[in-house]
Every structure is written in structure tokens, then in C-alpha cells.
Design a protein around this nucleic acid. Structure first.
Length: 487
RNA sequence: GCUGGCGUAGCUCAGUCCGGCUAGAGCACCUGACUGUGGAUCAGGAGGUCUCGGGUUCAAUUCCCGACGCCAGUACCA
């Protein structure tokens, strides 16, 4: 009575959400589908903890000794900073470095939440799931090609065939192009290089002109906010835009076009070579340009990529790329941080939250949850019988629930109605006297209700309920459920 | 982070410009009409520190300042 102002208001921390019922079932279904594909490719599951030392995540600022912004970090019962993982790739590197006896190459898939302190937006949260697949310890382009194929298979299995495209770029090619253009990638700690990546990453949204502006002096957007440019010269910018517009009907054609642009750069030549190799593996595996293409505008914003980079997007009806549903690439330096040894690695990450939104939007996933049969309680003295009926149904494999609240039969049926329960079992004095039970077909009742206005008339509709011998109950309900699933 | 918009019942919102009576509506919820039957209908009920804090005023949900939160755009995102 006095504690009202002490009572906390129920609320959620910014960027977090509750999920329930059908949303979760849909998620499980989607994840299962992808998992089957990954296992078919020979990847096996791995789970790592949600919490890591902030140092393991590489999100630690040397000078200040504090965690970087953007990570959820805290100190619990020890002096060292802990953090919620920021992605699944850094924990994978840690795991690989910790277990020297792992068979190499090490191939795993992992699904789990990652956490980032970022501005939440539509479909963007501070806790989100990632579904990663990686091969650690293989430098072969077959590993990269295979990752792309696995993504395609997963999307196909999710009934997205023909609606997506996996696009592949290569960091080495871009580095080569910049080298040829005379951009000093090592200058100012790679800041210029980073900026160039980020500009190109915005190509889809800003177009060639916007990217060109960003590459040079910078660009003012419509809200008046000025974004600093990468500071390239006119001539250098032209080389980059040339690179971005290199295209061809075939992957091999893109390689040829790129070869002409990278000039004498060894790094660039090697990048083109990698793409040619990938193309060979993809062809041999049977994946043509309808699924996987080469696209120079794919660079990815992250700095750690060292070779091929991938991005899977939904293709809208204008042929544009609307939403990105997976991304990844080769990162040969990530394990080196721990072991000092170069370990080549490549992988990709699907964003299940966004993918699920898309699947729902396209009606590609039915998110129905199985509601149980409800056994209602009418007479207290028959409580044991209701219990018995409920377990009888369960033992027959029929999901069933005994009504555990209080209230008369009307209230119990209302509960069933709200929960979308298909069938209610009703038994009172009449039924017990004659050794029967009544079975109410709530779904049919719902259909009938649409056309009936008068209550008296609605109660007259007797086809929604049947009284059957107790011994026939299971059989009757099974038939009824089967009839439901038919339509 | 920056710019703009918005914070009134569980939800969607009116009222606020131009300060004043008991702050409203729809949906949802609860009770009853209906005794052993969901929906619809009808009648009734409950639910609000009008985001929070300060200021102006006889008087603030309304005007002013600040904080926080939400939405949109933009930036950032190993």
C-alpha cells in the first residue's frame, strides 16, 4: 500500500525486445533450414559464451585501458573488463587460438546473440542474432567459393530462389587499384584506406556521384550534415569510379575488366587471380551468374577483410539490391593477434532477424504455432477425470492442456478462443452419467459466428459440438485435427 | 553524435494554438443480461502524478527552460 512509488514500471532497455509465440517458431524453422544446409557441407556446431574478456574481442583501447564504445562492458568480481560479444567471429578466433589440437581446417557454424551499443532502428536492435559459418585454416579459394554456395543453398531452401544474388568483390583488387592510382594506403594509419572503403560501401545508396564527392572533399546531405571526404584527387577519384563501374555479363568478364584497371600492381593482380580461381570453383560446383556474380562495388565497411568479400541481397523488381541478408569475406589476420602465426580464414554471417522479416513479408514462412486441445473443468468432483483425460490425450501424442484457472465454462471457452485453441473437451454430469465426453470444434464455431448475428441462433448451431463415447475420444479428436490441417 | 518531429488510459489518438470546471473517444479488459457453452449485441465497471524536473501565473496537460524517452533522416558500426 505504501510502496506504490517504489514499484518499478515494467519496461525494456533501449534497443532490446521481447519475442513470443509465432515469431520464435518462425525463427526456429528458418534456423533449422539453414543448419541442415551447413551440416550438409560438413560444418559442425560450436557454442561460445556470451561474455568474453573485452581484450578477446579486440575492443580495448590501449592508452586508456578502457573498453571501446559500442560494446556492453562491465567488471564483475574481478579487475579485468568483461563484455558481451560484439560478433561471433572474434570469439571464433579466440577459440581457435586456444585449441591448438583442433583438426585443421576447422569448420564450424554458430548461431547466437551479439550485442552492440548502436542507435536502434527499424529491424535493428542492440541484441540481435547472427548465424555464422566459417572455415579457419584454409587459404584455398575453394573455401571462399563454398561459403557462397552454402549461402545460396540456404536461401534456395528458404524458397528465395531467384530473388537474391550473392555478390563478390575482392579487397586485394581494390588495394591494387588504389596503389595504381597513387593513393598511399599506409598513410595516416590507414585512415584514408578506411575512408575509401566506407565511401564505396555507400555506393548502393548514394550512387556514383555521391561516392565520387565523398572520395574527394566530402559531401553535404539534405539534413545539412557534412561528411568529411577521403581527400583523393580528381584523377585518383576517376580511377576508383572506373573500377566501380567495371562490369560484365559474366564473372570472367568482370575479371578481365578488373585486370585492365589494376595495372602493374602485384596485389591487384593477385586479387584478380583469386577471383578467377573462385569463378572456376563456382562453375565446377554448378553455380552460375544467376546466383553469384562479381561486383567491384562490394567492399564491406570492416577493415579486417583481406581477400574476397561477399554480400547477399534481395533483388527488388527494378533489379536493385534492397536489403542485405548476409555478408562475409576472407580475414587472414584475425587469429594472428593471439598466436603470432598467420592463419587464413573465411566465412559469412547471415542476419536472421532481417531475413525473417523478409521471409514474412514475402509470405515464405508460415509462423503458425500449434495450440493444444483444451480440457475444460466443469464439476469439481470430477477433477481427477479431467486430469486423466488430459494425460490420455498427451500420451496419444495430442498436445493438450487442462484449464488451470478459475471460472465457469463460458470463461474457459473464452480463454480457448483467445488462444486460438482448435478443440475444447467438455464433460459434466450428463457426460459422466452416460460414459461420454463432448468435443467442441472451436474452429468451425468461429466460421459460423461470422454469419450469425443473434445469440440465440448462434447457440442453436449444433454441428460445432459432438458427444462421443469416452472410449472413442482419442480417435475422434485425431480425425478432427486431421480435418483442420487439410484446409 | 547531428538535425527535425513527437511524449495524454494496455493500444490508437482527440483536447493544448488562445492556460480555468469532474481530461475524453475507439479498441482491449472486468461484471451482468446468459442457469452447462466462445462470437455479436446491450447495460454497467475499472483503468491517468496528461514522460520527468524546474520556471511564469491566482491557476499549467496547455506557455517557457532543461533532462529523459520515442520516431524519421544523417553519421558511426573491428
Amino acid at each position: 500500500m505504501s510502496g506504490k512509488e517504489l514499484r518499478p514500471k515494467p519496461r525494456l532497455a533501449r534497443g532490446f525486445r521481447d519475442l513470443s509465440g509465432a515469431d520464435i517458431v518462425a525463427r526456429y524453422k528458418m534456423i533449422d533450414t539453414i543448419r541442415e544446409v551447413y551440416e550438409l557441407y560438413g560444418f559442425s556446431p560450436l557454442e561460445t559464451p556470451t561474455v568474453e574478456f573485452v581484450e578477446m574481442l579486440g575492443k580495448f583501447i590501449q592508452e586508456t585501458g578502457l573498453p571501446e564504445e559500442g560494446v556492453f562492458s562491465f567488471r564483475a568480481d574481478q579487475p579485468e573488463w568483461l563484455a558481451l560479444r560484439y560478433d561471433l567471429t572474434a570469439p571464433l578466433s579466440r577459440y581457435f587460438a586456444m585449441h591448438k589440437d583442433l583438426p585443421r581446417p576447422f569448420r564450424r557454424y554458430q548461431i547466437g546473440s551479439a550485442f552492440r551499443i548502436e542507435k536502434p532502428g527499424p529491424g535493428r536492435f542492440r541484441e540481435f542474432i547472427q548465424f555464422d559459418i566459417d572455415t579457419v585454416g584454409s587459404a584455398s579459394m575453394a573455401a571462399d567459393a563454398e561459403i557462397c554456395c552454402a549461402l545460396c543453398d540456404a536461401f534456395d531452401k528458404l524458397r528465395l530462389a531467384g530473388m537474391y544474388l550473392v555478390r563478390v568483390g575482392n579487397r586485394r583488387v581494390l588495394n591494387g587499384v588504389l596503389e595504381t592510382a597513387g593513393v598511399d594506403m599506409k598513410a595516416d594509419d590507414g585512415l584514408t584506406a578506411t575512408r575509401v572503403m566506407r565511401c564505396i560501401d555507400k555506393y548502393e545508396r548514394l550512387g556514383l556521384k555521391g561516392v565520387a564527392a565523398l572520395l574527394k572533399q566530402g559531401r553535404k546531405d539534405e539534413s545539412g550534415d557534412f561528411t568529411e571526404g577521403a581527400g583523393l584527387t580528381e584523377a585518383q577519384t576517376e580511377v576508383v569510379t572506373n573500377y566501380l563501374t567495371a562490369s560484365s555479363e559474366t564473372r570472367r568478364g568482370v575479371c578481365d575488366a578488373l585486370a585492365a584497371i589494376v595495372g602493374d600492381s602485384d596485389e591487384g593482380k593477385r586479387g584478380v587471380e583469386e577471383l578467377i580461381e573462385m569463378d572456376g570453383f563456382l562453375k565446377a560446383a554448378g553455380y552460375d551468374e544467376s546466383k553469384i556474380i562479381f561486383d567491384p562495388t562490394i567492399v564491406r565497411g570492416l577493415t579486417y577483410y583481406t581477400g574476397p568479400v561477399f554480400e547477399a541481397s534481395i533483388v527488388d523488381e527494378n533489379g536493385g539490391y534492397s536489403s542485405s541478408i548476409a555478408g562475409g569475406g576472407r580475414y587472414d589476420d584475425l587469429v594472428e593477434r593471439f598466436t603470432g602465426q598467420k592463419v587464413p580464414a573465411t566465412g559469412a554471417s547471415i542476419g536472421p532477424d532481417r531475413l525473417l522479416d523478409i521471409l514474412k513479408g514475402l509470405g515464405k514462412i508460415e509462423a503458425a504455432i500449434t495450440e493444444p486441445v483444451l480440457v475444460t473443468q466443469m464439476d469439481k468432483e470430477h477433477a481427477a477425470d479431467y486430469q486423466a483425460i488430459t494425460f490420455e490425450l498427451r500420451r496419444a501424442g495430442i498436445p493438450a492442456e487442462l484449464y488451470l484457472g478459475k471460472g465457469n465454462i463460458g470463461k474457459q471457452l473464452k480463454y480457448a478462443d483467445q488462444r486460438n485453441i482448435p478443440i475444447a473437451v467438455i464433460a459434466g454430469g450428463d457426460e459422466f452419467a452416460s460414459g461420454t465426453v463432448s468435443v467442441k470444434d472451436l474452429r468451425k464455431g468461429k466460421e459460423v459466428a461470422i454469419e450469425v448475428a443473434e445469440r440465440s441462433e448462434w447457440l442453436k448451431h449444433e454441428e460445432t459440438q459432438d458427444t462421443v463415447p469416452r472410449s472413442k475420444l482419442i480417435e475422434y479428436i485425431k480425425d478432427l485435427l486431421a480435418a483442420h490441417s487439410d484446409d
